[in-house]
């Protein structure tokens, strides 16, 4: 069976990290599994973890009274789930639910946060990678804001 460090090395998110950093990050991670329908994150709860999805599918949703959970993003194998652990107040902003069985590596955010604070170079590399993910998600949201599919009803 592959070690967590070996699993991480396969993921584009961690590509380019030196072996020492990779080993350290791997030391904060553990393998986790969720079944379809399992709640992974809950809005408002403390955010001390982030996940690298190895396989499966996760829906990020926002609970709207009267409409239920509105899905705002879906994530797949290779995607990163959760960045609220990096920023105060360290609370989840959305719900996350497994839509298909999920295999992931869960990282101890507190451990990583402390390491990032003490090792600025690793901290920069990690924040840079998270920034790239955030940018992609922001672009996706901006594109959806354009509402390019036109009027929903005849004008």
């Amino acid at each position: 069976m592959k070690t967590i460090a070996e699993l991480l090395a396969e993921q584009t998110f961690f590509q380019g990290l030196d072996q020492g950093s990779l080993d350290f990050v791997a030391g904060c991670g553990r393998n986790v599994h969720y079944s379809a329908g399992d709640r992974i994150l809950t809005q408002g709860e403390p955010a001390h973890t982030f996940y690298l999805l190895r396989s499966g599918s996760v829906a990020l949703s926002f609970y709207v009274p009267g409409r239920g959970g509105v899905i705002i993003d879906t994530l797949d194998g290779g995607d990163v789930l959760g960045w609220s652990w990096l920023f105060e107040p360290y609370k989840w902003q959305f719900d996350a639910e497994a839509r298909a069985d999920v295999a992931a590596v869960a990282f101890d955010g507190v451990c990583l946060r402390n390491k990032c604070d003490s090792d600025a170079q690793l901290g920069y590399l990690l924040v840079q990678r998270f920034a790239k993910v955030m940018l992609a998600r922001l672009q996706s949201v901006r594109m959806r804001m354009l509402d390019i599919y036109g009027p929903g009803t005849p004008s």
Binding site: A59, L60, S61, R67, G68, G69, V70, I71, I72, D73, T74, E97, R99, S140, R144
Partner: peptide
């Protein structure tokens, strides 16, 4: 909504 089984994005 949650009933949707496809992707969102």
């Amino acid at each position: 909504t949650a009933a949707w089984k496809g992707d969102v994005g």
